[in-house]
Amino acid sequence: MTMEAQADRIAWPEEAEAVERPRRRWLPFSPWHLVLFPLALIMLLPLVWMIVTSLETQAESLHFPPVLVPGSLHFGNYPSALRSAPFGRWFLNTFIVTSTVVVSNLLLCSLAGYAFARIRFFGRAATFMLLLATLMVPFQVVMIPTFLIVKKLGLFDSLPALIAPNLVSAFGIFMLRQFFRTLPVELEEAARIDGASRLGVLFKIVLPLSLPALATLAVIQFMWTWNDFLWPLIAVFSQRNFTLQLGLTVFQGSHDVFWPLVMAGNVMSMIPMLVLFFAAQRYFVRGIATTGLKG
């Protein structure tokens, strides 16, 4: 069939780019690496130091200059750390809080972001400006009112106290709205003519096409919540409701700073984040690239 033959001759963009003249190289790698490599080293150093310290003896950890290659690896620091504080409980708490917050953010920010992106309603622009304005208010300003509200709700010193104020974020709404606006509106119109409701359009067309943005939001939200220290410090009181970050700090203060154990705890608290980051990195990087540029 002639049409198929026609199709075969269409040059794909990748091919077109590949034909471009090859750049002349005076180094076996891009010159940018000369800048990026030292920067990466600087960024990695604390991480490496943390991991190394978590495997050292107390003496090595206090030695100056720092010992970067320990004499022997003390993996026993990890079980000791787990035994010396209710890390399991804190880990579970953090996990419950973080996953609830991430899931609810993905859902609620999608709904609100879509409304701001596509539905025309009275006061949309004003509401959106108000929402943006809240992004500029530092947490320290709203900390005490938030605490009072949470206390009035009878949630003080409970996991819901950690979850409730973070169920939805202005940042998430803003980010998803920006992304949704870059999607061709005809897709949504086609789906509506095809018989989808507004929600159907959101869940069957818009969200599947927004995976990069959703992954980005998930990672950012996970990171914030997992690492949050200040709000748990205010909102919970009993050790059984601690999150990891709060627990680690208390742990650090209650002993004569036994650094290898503290660092072992820190390494363990970081693992879920590293896993998530590497898993979502592909989407994450693309998400930042697209949400940042197309407004």
């Binding site: 061709p184 005809e186 897709l187 119109e189 086609a190 509506r192 003519i193 095809d194 409701s197 067309i205």
Partner: peptide, 16 residues
């Protein structure tokens, strides 16, 4: 639109 029982072809096709 969903209840009008019409179908539309868009200029840019709007395929999902």
């Amino acid at each position: 639109p969903r209840d009008r029982d019409i179908a539309m072809v868009f200029q840019n096709y709007a395929l999902y």
